[in-house]
Design a protein around this nucleic acid. Sequence first.
DNA 1: GTCTATACGAGGATAGAC
DNA 2: GTCTATCCTCGTATAGAC
Lengths: 214, 214
Amino acid sequence: MARPKNKKVENVKPVRDAEATQAVILMSAEEEFAQHGFTAARTETIAAKTGVAKSMIYYYFKDKEGLYREVLKRSHADLIQTLQKLELEHLSPDTALEIFLRALLDCVSRNPKLPTIMFHEAVQNQGKYYQHSDSVSIDTTLIKILEQGVTAGVFRQLDPFQSAINVMGTCLFYFIGAGNIQQFPQDKRLLSKAMLEQHTHEAISLILAGVRQV
Amino acid sequence: MARPKNKKVENVKPVRDAEATQAVILMSAEEEFAQHGFTAARTETIAAKTGVAKSMIYYYFKDKEGLYREVLKRSHADLIQTLQKLELEHLSPDTALEIFLRALLDCVSRNPKLPTIMFHEAVQNQGKYYQHSDSVSIDTTLIKILEQGVTAGVFRQLDPFQSAINVMGTCLFYFIGAGNIQQFPQDKRLLSKAMLEQHTHEAISLILAGVRQV
DNA sequence: GTCTATACGAGGATAGAC
DNA sequence: GTCTATCCTCGTATAGAC
């Protein structure tokens, strides 16, 4: 059976599309790093899931660390940007908090791997691949909101620093446990659209009720 | 300067105390596994921090996995036991919740490495080293308390399952971030006694206020 | 029980053909 | 740009002396 000439129907692999190749590597790498962290991640596993040769990783990203840095950068980009353009200054603390939380939860719902990536980076590498701007500034924003709420009297007497951490925990821990608890029947997977929306709602309710002055 | 005879002051190492050797290995291993998880942990690093030879790990624990299992078991023992003997059945849901939370936070404050060990196990290994009894039962207890509180009307309308996860997050996330955020001046280390007590207080306050019916 | 030395496999990285 | 084949370091695990 003859094929149309000038068309490689069989042997689809050598597409020679640089962008596409990088994209699949990055996607596979994000998954691997999210589950295992930098050290325990295997370049071979990353390559295997893409279909492209392992050496492509080194061609495009120099080495494992280069790939890791790129994954870290891209994973955080969306979150950083979203939170930066929030304009919370002129809002009341409780509205600001709700908007902040909704934005945060939207981001991580879109990219559920982000919390585990952050976690591995924080625990394993003590955050050494983070620029001082990144996740630090996230917490700073939240601390400020809480501080203003306390002084304004709309939030109860809480420690802004400690509470900021706990609030983040309420939002993000869900995604850390997700991998472990997801062996559930039906459409109760923790990362299904319905469950993610519910988590967003539940987390925001819990936090707002938790900080409010009674 | 002569030393008392029959006393090895110099060359302290060959003590030949089996229990002591195992103990130092386990302590060092717990630290290493807490930071890096099973795969990324290095037996050489574990041994180096103890002063005993690397081969002692294999002598006492067969292999890296055997050591890991033992660390896992011991780390969880305290928590499992403490929560099992709580007797929460005859208490009102809000009192039960507070007691449960205080017990949980006491345990993890005594052993701050536990949350990161759990985390690594959940994310990296998808909980495969867990028996079905362990951390699952922790959450089950919490879910039951929340359910009873909702039906009794003392808690607001919340989803017990989702809220249980979020409550755990409020308590435990602190310890996950601790390694990363601890570069703080003075006695503001996140794992200092004062800060741990404050965290216990802040977390309980946030949760109780967050679930209560208004 | 403890150590040193070493075997062996896994995994990161490179060379060179196509 | 992509692949295959190979190198070599690092890390687990064992052998054997003390």
